[in-house]
Design a protein around this nucleic acid. Structure first.
Length: 348
DNA sequence: AGAATTTGACCCAG
DNA sequence: CTGGGTCAAATTCT
C-alpha cells in the first residue's frame, strides 16, 4: 500500500480519529438519557468515518502508481486500474474508478451569507472561474442544487468542482461544497479563495500588535482587540513572532466545524475557530464561531462546548499577495465577553 | 460565432 | 428502485 499522496494519509488518520471521538461521544450518550435518534446519528457518523477510511485504504492499495508531475490525484488516467490490461473500455473504466476516487477528493463546505436575494453571483465568486454544468432538485429541499466545475477542466485538466445550495433555514445563506483543489493556473484574480485547501495548509499566525496590557473593561478590551488583532497568513517557513498569538490548524487542512483552527496564547489553548459564515470575497466580512477546545493525546483539538453566541467577525483584506492577509476583529456584541479573555494568562 | 447556461436523460451507489 | 451527480444537446447570452 502506498499512501504517498499526503492528503490521503491525513484524510485516513482524520477519519480514524473522528471515528474514535464519535465512539467516545456515543459511549457518553449511552450512559445518559439521550434520545435514540442522537445515538443513531452518532452511530451513522461512526460507520461513515470507518467506511471512508476503508475506502481510502482500498483505493490507495489499488492505485499505487505515482501521478505524473503536474497532475492531481483525481484526474482520469488510463492507468488508474492497475490490474486491468489495456482494452477498448479502459477509458470508460478509468472514469468509473475516478468517480469512486472523486468521492475521496478533499471536500470542504462553507456557508456564505448574501446581503440581498439576488446576491448569489457575488456570494459565490471565490476568485476562481467556474462553469455551471447542472442543476438538480434535491429531495426535501426547497431550493435546487447547482453544480459547477472549473472552467479550465478541459484545457488544464483541473478537476475542482463545487456545489451551491441555498439554505433551508436562512435563504440568505448559501452552502458551497468544494471538491478537489484547483490545479489550473487561472489569470490572477488578486484574491485567493480564503478557504481553499492550499491555503488551509499554510501556516497561520495572529499578530497581536501593541496591545495595552493594563486592566480594562471587557468592552474596552474587545474594542482594543478589534483594532489590533491581525491574522497573517503566510506560505510556509517561520516568521519572527513577537506576538503572543498563534492560530494553528487543528487537523490536516480543511477548516470545518469538525476541523477547527485553534487559538493559542503563549502556547495555551484559548479556543478554536471554525467557519460559521465565510465569504469568499476578500472585501466582505467573514464570521467564525469561537469555542473552547482541548488537545488530545493525538495532538488533535476538540471543541468542548461550542456556544453560538461566541462569534468572531473577521474582515479579510485583499493584498497583492496571492495568499493575502486576514484582519480579524472581534465583535463585542456577538462575542461572549468572558471568552476567551477570562482564560488564565490571557493578559499576562 | 463562441461561450455559458439550461434541462432532460443517463449512470450508478446505496 | 431511488436520488444524487454528470453528461450533452438545445438554448441563451455576449
Amino acid at each position: 500500500m502506498d499512501l504517498g499522496c499526503n492528503w490521503e494519509q491525513k484524510a485516513l488518520v482524520n477519519e480514524l480519529i473522528q471515528g474514535i471521538e464519535l465512539a467516545k461521544q456515543l459511549r457518553v450518550e449511552l450512559t445518559s438519557a439521550s434520545s435514540s435518534e442522537s445515538r443513531e446519528a452518532l452511530l451513522q457518523r461512526i460507520l461513515s468515518s470507518y467506511d471512508k477510511a476503508l475506502l481510502i485504504l482500498k483505493w490507495s492499495g489499488s492505485v499505487a502508481q505515482p501521478q505524473p508531475a503536474g497532475t492531481y490525484a483525481g484526474v482520469p488516467n488510463s492507468s488508474v486500474s492497475a490490474d486491468v490490461s489495456p482494452r477498448s473500455e479502459d477509458f470508460e473504466r478509468g472514469f468509473k474508478d475516478v468517480s469512486k476516487k472523486r468521492k475521496l477528493l478533499p471536500t470542504w463546505t462553507k456557508q456564505v451569507r448574501v446581503g440581498s436575494e439576488n446576491g448569489l453571483d457575488g456570494a459565490t465568486d471565490d476568485g476562481y472561474s467556474w462553469r455551471k454544468y447542472g442543476q438538480k432538485d434535491i429531495l426535501g429541499a426547497t431550493y435546487p442544487r447547482s453544480y459547477y466545475r472549473c472552467t479550465y477542466r478541459n484545457t488544464q485538466s483541473c478537476w475542482a468542482t463545487k456545489q451551491v445550495q441555498r439554505s433551508e433555514e436562512d435563504p440568505t445563506i448559501f452552502e458551497i461544497t468544494y471538491r478537489g483543489k484547483h490545479t489550473c493556473h487561472q489569470a490572477s484574480n488578486s484574491v485567493a479563495p480564503p478557504a481553499s485547501p492550499e491555503k488551509q495548509e499554510l501556516k497561520k499566525h495572529i499578530h497581536h500588535q501593541n496591545y495595552n496590557q493594563q486592566q480594562q473593561s471587557s468592552n474596552d478590551m474587545l474594542l482594543n482587540l478589534r483594532a489590533n488583532l491581525r491574522v497573517n497568513v503566510e506560505e510556509g517557513g517561520n516568521t519572527e513572532m513577537a506576538s503572543p498569538f498563534s492560530l494553528s490548524s487543528a487537523s490536516f487542512g480543511c477548516m470545518t466545524s469538525e476541523n477547527p483552527f485553534s487559538m493559542l496564547l503563549n502556547g495555551d489553548l484559548l479556543g478554536s475557530f471554525s467557519p460559521s459564515f465565510i465569504s469568499p470575497a476578500a472585501s466582505e466580512s467573514n464570521y467564525y464561531s469561537v469555542s473552547p477546545c482541548q488537545m488530545d493525546s493525538f495532538g488533535q483539538f476538540h471543541n468542548l462546548q461550542p456556544k453560538e453566541s461566541e462569534i468572531i467577525s473577521a474582515n479579510t483584506s485583499a493584498t497583492n499577495s496571492p495568499i493575502g492577509d486576514l484582519d480579524f476583529s472581534i465583535d463585542p456584541v456577538d462575542l461572549n465577553p468572558n471568552f476567551p479573555f477570562d482564560s488564565p494568562g490571557f493578559f499576562d
